[in-house]
Design a protein around this nucleic acid. Structure first.
Lengths: 205, 205
DNA sequence: TAGATTGTTAATCGATTAACAATC
DNA sequence: TAGATTGTTAATCGATTAACAATC
């Protein structure tokens, strides 16, 4: 296996995957670096360079076989089978993520949703029933969950992260608009709509 | 005014702002580049370099006055007053964003939510009532809206973008997991949880 | 074969860091 | 003044691009 791929490249692989899925759905069988680049607003050279880190994945004269490349990228990203994950917080966002149909074909599945609010515990959301947060540890350990999605208010986020880390979770997708501390080895990705809006507003007026 | 600040720097300003707000709330008055760097996992030198693009914002020997810097960054990002925005799609995500209380103090306010589904039109969400998508153009023009948030399924996204662009919207925050075409001058930011999950999963196992 | 497109090298470009004089 | 931290220059590092031989 190839070692030490720069993070910036890893960050682009999901984008390649998304574009390839789109092309496949549109009926294409091959995609050239030029076509992909156009779709993603990247240079063809960059796409070839990125992909070359993982072997010779293309066919000279033809481009990249879409099916094969999707498969390969999923292998690299470890999304070639389904990760079970849990959602913390059964508000609008947590509920939406739990009901969201778009995860399954990209390697993820919500297998439980938790809340602390007795009013929400027991409520049905999609195919799942909201569990009491006190069952968190047992559930994570029994089901060997590795990914958690945090959809709770900022003020509770650090406490919950600490609990999650204790249970053995090592990957967290955080929707709370706050910086969170976690020990080395625990990956956190942040999604904060206000950050994106602020970037947009810079270009306005 | 300073010209042509690299995008990569603009992208970090909202993060600085988030950290500064946090520090202010915790009672601090000054923050040094070293402290900020620690909080954000960036080097102190980088933070000083970034901020120096916008003038001499710090005090030698003391650091940056938090209140002043927050103010300044908001000026730079154009978030020193409230942008009115619209949400398209009254599903879980659109509803959640509409009800979300965290936008106001960061420069944004949802001023209408639209859907195409007669079942959803007229429904109350937070302080707003879901409007018919056919009222979109009139509303945007009357209220001089410049920012739209897209929270609809991927298959409708391009059509809606085209409509939005026609009404004069120039900034779009897109939650549909798909690449969207828009004319030069229309900024689109993408939020796709699966992309973040795929990055996380690369580091798992 | 001719045309197309990859994989890869070397050149370029831009971003980050180290270091330190300036100064609060 | 002594200590601290900025703002900025120059050096370093890494990412992107241009170009082209290899090859389907």
């Amino acid at each position: 296996m190839v070692n030490q791929i720069p993070h910036i490249i890893i960050g682009r692989l999901p984008l390649y995957l998304r574009a390839l899925n789109r092309l496949q759905k549109d009926g294409y069988e091959y995609a050239s670096s030029r076509e992909l680049g156009k779709l993603l607003d990247l240079s063809a050279a960059q796409i070839r360079k990125d992909l070359s880190h993982f072997g010779e994945l293309g066919k000279r004269g033809k481009g990249y076989e879409i099916e094969f490349l999707i498969c390969k990228l999923n292998q690299i990203l470890n999304t070639d089978n389904i990760w079970k994950m849990i959602v913390i917080g059964a508000g609008d966002l947590g509920s939406g993520l739990t009901r969201y149909k778009g995860f399954a074909n990209r390697g993820f599945q919500v297998s439980a949703i938790f809340d602390i609010d007795p009013q929400k515990i027991g409520k049905k959301i999609g195919d799942l029933v909201v569990k009491d947060i006190r069952e968190l540890e047992k559930f994570v350990k029994t089901n060997k969950i590795q990914i958690a999605v945090l959809a709770i208010p900022a003020k509770y986020a650090q406490d919950v992260i600490d609990d999650l880390v204790d249970t053995g979770i090592t990957a967290i997708l955080n929707y709370a608009p706050i910086y969170l501390k976690a020990p080395h080895g625990v990956q956190i990705e942040h999604i904060d709509p206000a950050v994106h809006l602020q970037k947009l507003s810079y270009f306005l007026k």
